[in-house]
């Protein structure tokens, strides 16, 4: 909180997402869980923001509130100044477990959004083709998700929200279940897509390296209850080389920040990972 910086110096900072003093408590018979407390966050149009933190610190909850799948217990969450009321096509969520419609082909999955927003058949086909090509799946248009690899499924999920004309891409550890090579490839592709479309992306991860490779800005979260610890801007030139010295300087810096904020019980496992 203390050392927040506003990044995106080269771009005019139009706030697309504003979160103010947000709390989230899950009520249940077994006891209430406060997942988020006093969260403030502003994201500008076109920014690539990573939410970084150990598991259980409320990253998914925050993302789901932005997506409109959960409501805040108190505080405000606004898109372009108006309160978020439920899920909508302006915010496209990419789930870790893909959440593709298994009974639809690759093409039909991507066409799902445009079709349900009442676009004409021709428009839908055009948009679908465009994004199917962007994620390199034109050859698999008639394949069902069951027959696709994890990486391909996630490409379909990304194309599906792109075709839906989302302004903000919400991604919840989308590459965590993929092998390292596929993950690196998809990170690269995602950056290419981001550069072409200039979407705003909020990307949840627990990997420091992934956050430094991808984002303009890393929002470090802490647990007990979930809150934002620090907000670090990443001013490395793109494309970024994970083997370069500046990259490693930033990575070390972020790792240190993360480490100094996590609870002692979590510290050991986090150290092993970093």
């Amino acid at each position: 909180m203390s050392d927040r910086k506003i990044s995106g110096l080269s771009k005019p900072a139009v706030p697309i997402l504003t979160i103010r003093n947000l709390d989230k408590t899950f009520l249940s018979d077994k006891g209430n869980v406060t997942a988020l407390k006093g969260v403030d966050l502003t994201v500008s149009k076109g920014e690539f923001v990573c939410l970084l933190g150990a598991s259980g610190c409320g990253k998914s909850t925050l993302l789901r509130i932005i997506g409109g799948f959960e409501g805040p217990s108190s505080g405000h969450a606004e898109i372009y100044g108006s309160a978020i009321k439920g899920p909508g096509p302006d915010r496209g969520m990419v789930f870790q477990d893909y959440a593709l419609f298994p009974w639809l082909t690759v093409e039909e999955n991507i066409a799902f959004g445009p079709k349900h927003q009442g676009r004409t058949r021709a428009e839908t086909a055009e948009v679908t083709d465009k994004f199917m090509e962007m994620v390199g799946l034109t050859g698999f248009r008639n394949t069902y998700p069951n027959a696709l690899s994890g990486g391909m499924k996630q490409r379909v999920a990304i194309a599906r929200v792109l075709a839906n004309d989302a302004d903000i891409l919400l991604m919840d550890e989308p590459f965590a279940a993929l092998d390292a090579l596929t993950r690196a490839k998809l990170q690269e592709e995602l950056l290419e897509i981001w550069e072409r479309t200039r979407l705003t992306i909020i990307f949840v991860t627990h990997s420091v390296e992934e956050a430094v490779i991808l984002s303009d800005r890393i929002v470090v979260m802490g647990a007990g209850p979930g809150h934002i610890e620090t907000d670090i801007s990443v001013d490395l030139a793109r494309p970024r080389d994970p083997a370069s010295i500046p990259f490693n300087d930033v990575r070390r810096d972020v790792s240190n920040q993360l480490r100094s904020h996590i609870a002692p019980a979590l510290r050991k496992s986090q150290l092993a990972e970093a």
Partner: peptide, 18 residues
């Protein structure tokens, strides 16, 4: 039916009787 599919549908603009 996996709840995630309902969430995905809602996010893609599919609601109500659809």
């Amino acid at each position: 039916v996996d709840d995630k599919l309902f969430e995905a549908a809602a996010m893609l603009g599919c609601n109500g009787s659809q």
